[in-house]
Design a protein around this nucleic acid. Structure first.
Lengths: 215, 215
DNA sequence: GTCATCAATTGACATAGTGTCAATTCTGAA
DNA sequence: TTCAGAATTGACACTATGTCAATTGATGAC
């Protein structure tokens, strides 16, 4: 009996994953607003009604995707840190990883932007919690890198609480990417090439963070 | 005949304004997604069908609101510049004006965030154009202030193209506000008070922009 | 004053999507 | 075999969007 129950839980989990995969695929194809619950259900080969057993409503499904997106982001950040040296380099690598992530998975970045842009509802018993947790973890990677940079002298002293710095850098970097991703046309109109902008803005952040040369 | 036609155009314009006012009010009350075209129509005392004569669809109405929001923002920025001294102070004042604006008109800021977050459709013959223009003008205020700061020596040399700097600062500031507005709960959870964060992040930007002390 | 014209205005419709529920099917255990 | 409970679904109610033919109303011509 316990065996059976266990298998059932596993299958439910697997199916949940399949649904999320389908939803992500559709998201990437046409953007969240154009995705209907019916399409998701069909793509995951179940009825729309059953879909609502797995995810209370469309928003809950979005939170599920968000948790996936943020955990993928965290992976990429960790990988970036792993192949970096000094703390400053780690922080830089995280920023570049975020940019690369946004380019490689625009739909994932879109989810992140949605969460950054809309305040989450205060329902605690849902995927929203998983989302917030995943976000915190990604931020934790940054904090660790900053601490390392302060310890090894590659990051400027006197910048205050590493957590505050991490949140700020996150907000700045997110701002850069968001503008670059969605306003390419406008930048063009201002005679600015997108890579020029991202490199410039990113350079500003780096100069802000780096320790002054001891020359 | 010409008189009549003129009056008609004026009345149409006035009504358009009334519709926008109603829409803005509802937006502020319940958020854009919860606003229905029927509510807007009723609030502006016309039928839903007629509403569609004034605005092709709900998105077009949003662009209309966006143009208003951005022009209000531009006003505030100009006022902020007017009561400032050096170029650096002007740039700072613009940033603070943006923050104050977001606090005073959260719904207006929400529109700005929507435009920053979602790429605009390439339909040129609509309110979207007015929106882009309003945005450009707001940005122009920043560029002018930066130029002044470079001329009077209050802004650090070697930061490159003023336009690039303006766009970057804009993106950064927007990032700060967005985080502060929508993630108050999460910041709290990280033991960070919202004003602490905004002041800190804003300070980082200032130190980045200011000319080094000549002491 | 009457009539024709064109803009303003609307009720009703077609379409599409969400979320719910009672009813049916399926599966393991007694 | 049969039964309890989980899985699954078709059909429904509801809400919102956008469209259109039909009606109303004002203006200028005669």
């Amino acid at each position: 009996m316990s065996y059976i129950a266990e298998r059932r839980v596993e299958e439910k989990e697997r199916r949940r994953g399949e649904i999320l995969d389908s939803a992500v695929r559709l998201y990437a194809e046409k953007g969240w607003d154009a995705v209907t619950m019916d399409q998701v259900a069909r793509s995951a080969r179940l009825s729309r009604a059953l879909l609502y057993v797995y995810f209370r409503d469309k928003e809950e499904l979005l939170y599920g995707i968000g948790a996936v997106a943020l955990s993928v982001l965290r992976e990429h950040c960790l990988a970036a840190v792993a192949r970096s040296g000094s703390g400053l380099e780690q922080v830089e690598a995280i920023g570049r990883a975020y940019m690369a992530y946004a380019q490689e998975y625009p739909h994932y970045f879109d989810v992140c932007a949605r969460f950054q842009a809309h305040s989450v509802s205060p329902d605690p018993g849902s995927n929203e919690g998983a989302c917030a947790a995943a976000g915190d973890e990604a931020l934790g990677v940054v904090v660790t890198a900053i601490r390392a940079g302060l310890a090894d002298g590659s990051i400027r002293q006197g910048l205050g609480d590493p957590m505050l710095l991490a949140v700020s850098l996150w907000a700045f970097t997110h701002g850069i990417i968001q503008l670059a991703m969605t306003k390419a046309r406008d930048l063009e109109h201002l005679q600015i090439a997108v890579p020029t902008f991202t490199e410039y803005a990113f350079g500003l952040l780096t100069s802000l963070t780096a320790a002054p040369k001891t020359a």
